[in-house]
Design a protein around this nucleic acid. Structure first.
Length: 153
DNA sequence: GCCAACGTTGGC
DNA sequence: GCCAACGTTGGC
C-alpha cells in the first residue's frame, strides 16, 4: 500500500465538498500533467491513502485523509468542450487523461500548514511537496513521512 | 533535437 | 496580482 498527497484548490473543491458528496466519494478529475497521470495509472492502487491538501488559498496545507477507492480510468471531462479542463486531443477511443475515485476518510484534528511542514523539512529531506519548484498536483509520500506528519496532529 | 514563446501552478 | 519554476507546443 502506498501513501499520497493530492492538491485541490478549496475554492474549486474542498475537503468539505468531498465529505458532502454522495457516499463521500468523488472522481478526482482534471489532472492534465503526464507525470501525475503516469503515477495514477501505474502506482496508485485501491486502498491507498492520500492526504487532502488545500492549495492556492489563505493557508495552504494538509487538512484531511481520503482513500483511493477506484483505480485509474478515463477522465471524461477531457471530452467535454464545456469543461474547464477540456482537451480536444484526448480521444474517447484512446483517452489521454485518467482519474481515480477518492473517498473521504476524516479531517485531521488540526490543519497542518505548508509553513509548518517547511519548518520540519530537515526531518523529511526527501518530501516531494517541499522540493523547490514542485508543481505536481499529486505527490507520493513515504510511509515514514506519513506517520511523522500524523504524529504532528 | 533545439529552444523561444506561451501556459499553468501555486506560494506569497 | 505578482512572479518563479516549471511543462508544453511548434517552428526550424
Amino acid at each position: 500500500m502506498r501513501y499520497w498527497l493530492m492538491k485541490s484548490e478549496p475554492d474549486a473543491f474542498s475537503i468539505d465538498d468531498l465529505k458532502n458528496c454522495p457516499k463521500k466519494t468523488e472522481h478526482w478529475d482534471g489532472v492534465r500533467n503526464y507525470q501525475v497521470r503516469n503515477m495514477m495509472r501505474d502506482d496508485m492502487k485501491k486502498g491507498d491513502l492520500a492526504f487532502f491538501y488545500h492549495s492556492n488559498c489563505a493557508e495552504p496545507g494538509i487538512v484531511g485523509i481520503m482513500t483511493i477507492t477506484r483505480e485509474a480510468y478515463p477522465d471524461h471531462t477531457a471530452f467535454d468542450p464545456e469543461d474547464h479542463h477540456y482537451d480536444p486531443k484526448s480521444d474517447p477511443d484512446n483517452p489521454r487523461w485518467l482519474m481515480v475515485d477518492v473517498t473521504y476518510k476524516r479531517h485531521l484534528k488540526r490543519n497542518i500548514s505548508l509553513q509548518e511542514l517547511k519548518q520540519l523539512n530537515a526531518q523529511m529531506p526527501d518530501f516531494a511537496l517541499l522540493r523547490k519548484g514542485n508543481r505536481l498536483s499529486v505527490v507520493p509520500v513515504e510511509k515514514e513521512y506519513w506517520d511523522f506528519i500524523l504524529g504532528l496532529e
